[in-house]
């Protein structure tokens, strides 16, 4: 494995421990630094409040030249999250820059929970409800929030 990716992931981990942004945490697996588990707490004043959502981040040797693939492990109901947990986020695709680190990725996902983008829906049902029936949308989100405690 390239030492560059390893060194960089070590720094990302150190930075995340020393200066953790609010509402997120993450750490590499003990036996594989390329695989990370992370948790995002549902931001306050959103339907996701109180949820604890687990994610998996898979890096490869091209990191940080290439973004990791990120996936929700917990069940998720969100306009920009696919049924299999993968998400549609610009900085994880064409807007990726090698200066982004794990903290930046997780904060971006956290703010995506805040502000869904219903114009490029990965989950059409969630996007429609978000636009047209906010009450039902909130109800469905609350379901996954409760689900996330199990």
């Amino acid at each position: 494995m390239s030492t560059e990716a390893r060194r960089r992931l070590m720094r990302d981990f150190k930075r995340l421990q020393n200066d953790p942004p609010g509402g997120i945490s993450g750490a590499p697996c003990p036996d594989n630094i390329l695989l990370w588990n992370a948790v995002i707490f549902g931001p306050a004043d959103t339907p996701f409040e109180d949820g604890t959502f687990k994610l998996a981040l898979q890096f490869d040797e091209n990191y940080p030249n290439k973004p990791p693939s990120v996936k929700f492990i917990s069940k998720m109901f969100h306009p920009n999250v696919y049924a299999n947990g993968e998400l549609c986020l610009d900085i994880l695709q064409n807007r990726w820059s090698p200066t982004y680190d794990v903290a930046a990725i997780l904060t971006s996902i956290q703010s995506l929970l805040h502000d869904p983008n219903p114009n490029s829906p990965a989950n059409a049902e969630a996007a429609n409800l978000y636009r047209e029936n906010r009450k039902e949308y909130i109800r469905r989100v609350k379901e996954v929030v409760e689900h996330s405690w199990e």
């Binding site: 560059e4 060194r7 960089r8 070590m10 720094r11 940080p64 090698p98 200066t99």
Partner: peptide, 8 residues
């Protein structure tokens, strides 16, 4: 100097 990308 420390490189922001590779931390060297």
């Amino acid at each position: 100097f420390m490189c922001e990308i590779c931390c060297d």
